[in-house]
């Protein structure tokens, strides 16, 4: 079967943190990348889709991704989930699978509702995200600057897969860029 592939993938830029994260995925043998899209993840999603060694799977809800990656690991594959902070709330009961089975799990979360947010509907879940993750039993790390993202993601992968932990990396809204559809920003 064929999946639609994104066209016109930009050339790899070693100074682009998203490309650096993709290289970390490669180095750590990530075989499955699952996601609910966010603008901040677009370039990384495209890199993953273009990689023939990776299953890159669009989900209908983030909750699926938690169970999906549990299954992937049971079958010997390492995976990651890409989502935005609004998706964290969709995962809460499914996170019990990670905690109850002490499974490795890694998610990269683009943050909303914390830095020049123009959409009030994003603020509540964005503000709740770090605490919800912690209450759900995940370790939480945060990246604010482009030059630290790849190192933090690498550390998250090591902690997750070497110590069988659920780890979330928050990619701050300051890092991924504000979104403003009002035309006033």
């Amino acid at each position: 079967m064929t999946l639609t592939q994104p066209s016109a993938l930009p050339a790899t830029d070693p100074n682009d943190w998203r490309d650096a994260v993709y290289e970390v995925f490669r180095a750590h043998a990530i075989r499955q990348a699952v996601y609910v899209p966010d603008v901040g993840h677009t370039r990384l999603i495209e890199r993953c889709h273009a990689d023939p060694d990776m299953h890159t799977v669009v989900l209908t809800t983030e909750e699926e991704g938690v169970a999906h990656l549990a299954g992937a690991w049971l079958g010997g594959d390492r995976g990651v989930m890409l989502m935005q902070s609004s998706g964290v709330g969709n995962c809460v009961n499914m996170f019990s699978l990670i905690a109850a089975c002490r499974l490795p799990f890694v998610t990269l979360i683009t943050m909303r509702g914390e830095w020049g947010e123009f959409n009030p509907w994003q603020v509540h879940m964005g503000q709740a995200t770090p605490e919800v993750l912690k209450l759900s039993g995940l370790l939480v790390q945060r990246a604010d600057h482009p030059d630290e993202v790849a190192e933090i993601v690498e550390s998250a992968l090591q902690t997750a897969f070497d110590s069988s932990q659920g780890v979330a990396v928050l990619l701050s809204q300051r890092l991924t860029g504000r979104k403003d559809f009002t035309g006033e920003g």
């Binding site: 909750e63 169970a67 990656l69 299954g71 992937a72 079958g75 594959d77």
Partner: peptide, 17 residues
């Protein structure tokens, strides 16, 4: 537990194996 998780978990496993 993890109600709703059977089908997506099986998918991740099927892709890995």
């Amino acid at each position: 537990g993890a109600m709703g998780g059977t089908a997506p978990l099986a998918l991740g496993l099927a892709l890995a194996q």
